[in-house]
Amino acid sequence: MTTTAISNFSQSAQQAQHWVNEVAGELDWDVPRAYRLLKAVLHALRDWLPQEEMSDLAAQLPTLIRGVFFEGWYPLNGIGHDRRKSDFIVAVRREFGFEEEIDFDRAIGAVFHLLDSHISAGEVDQIRNSMRKALRQLWPAD
């Protein structure tokens, strides 16, 4: 393996850690808990978006985060984007694991805020516009 490949892998790991740290910092959570949330929200978002939007989003994610995004993916043929906000939250809760004291609206909003800071504004607008209005409430426009 070349030094460049190792350097790229290390940089990707640092980017992924930075993303998880940002979520942890915004919610005042520990890093493992923030990682579980990031993964759960990314999976729910992936399954809710039309496949074209899902692919466009994935292209802007850091390499290791993109791997997390696609982990366990099974194509739903676009049927997921017609669900309600409550279904999205249930999907996140199911994957995250039940913790009674969590405000999932706020927690999911923290991940969407992270995406706002790292994904192009045009892509964020496209993703938001492909969501149902109720789900967009979790991802308010800045």
Rank of each mutant, 00 (worst) to 15 (best):
I79C: 02
Q137T: 11
A141C: 08
S86N: 15
S117C: 11
A13C: 15
G78P: 05
L138Q: 00
I89V: 13
N21F: 00
I65T: 15
Q17G: 05
S117T: 14
W48R: 15
A24M: 02
R132Q: 13
E95W: 14
A24L: 00
Q14I: 13
G67Q: 10
L64K: 02
Q51T: 15
D82Y: 12
P75L: 00
G97Y: 10
G67C: 07
G25N: 11
G109N: 07
V92L: 05
G122M: 05
R132S: 15
W139Y: 08
A134W: 14
S86M: 14
H81R: 13
L135R: 12
A16I: 02
S12D: 12
W19S: 03
V41E: 06
A34Y: 07
V68R: 10
T2L: 07
A34R: 06
V92A: 03
E101G: 15
S12R: 07
A24I: 02
K39R: 13
D47W: 03
F96I: 00
T3I: 15
F69A: 03
P32R: 09
K85N: 07
S10R: 10
R94G: 09
A40H: 13
L64H: 06
A13G: 15
H113S: 12
L42K: 04
A44Q: 03
G109K: 03
R93I: 13
P140G: 08
P62S: 10
R83Y: 11
T3E: 12
G109P: 00
D28N: 12
R66V: 00
A58H: 05
A110V: 08
M1H: 08
Q17D: 04
V124M: 02
S130W: 06
R33E: 12
M1E: 10
L61A: 09
D103T: 11
R36E: 10
F112H: 01
V41W: 04
G78D: 10
E26G: 11
G72I: 02
A134H: 12
R128E: 01
H81T: 07
E22P: 08
A44W: 04
L27Q: 06
L138N: 00
L49N: 01
Q51W: 11
S130K: 01
T3R: 15
A58Y: 02
N8L: 11
S55Y: 10
E123A: 04
H18M: 15
R132E: 11
F69C: 00
W73Y: 06
Q15H: 05
H113F: 12
P62D: 03
N8V: 01
S55E: 13
S55R: 14
F69R: 02
T4M: 09
T3D: 13
L135F: 06
E53L: 04
G122L: 09
Q51K: 09
S117P: 08
I102V: 14
W48T: 14
L61D: 01
F9L: 15
G80C: 04
R106W: 08
L64D: 01
L45M: 13
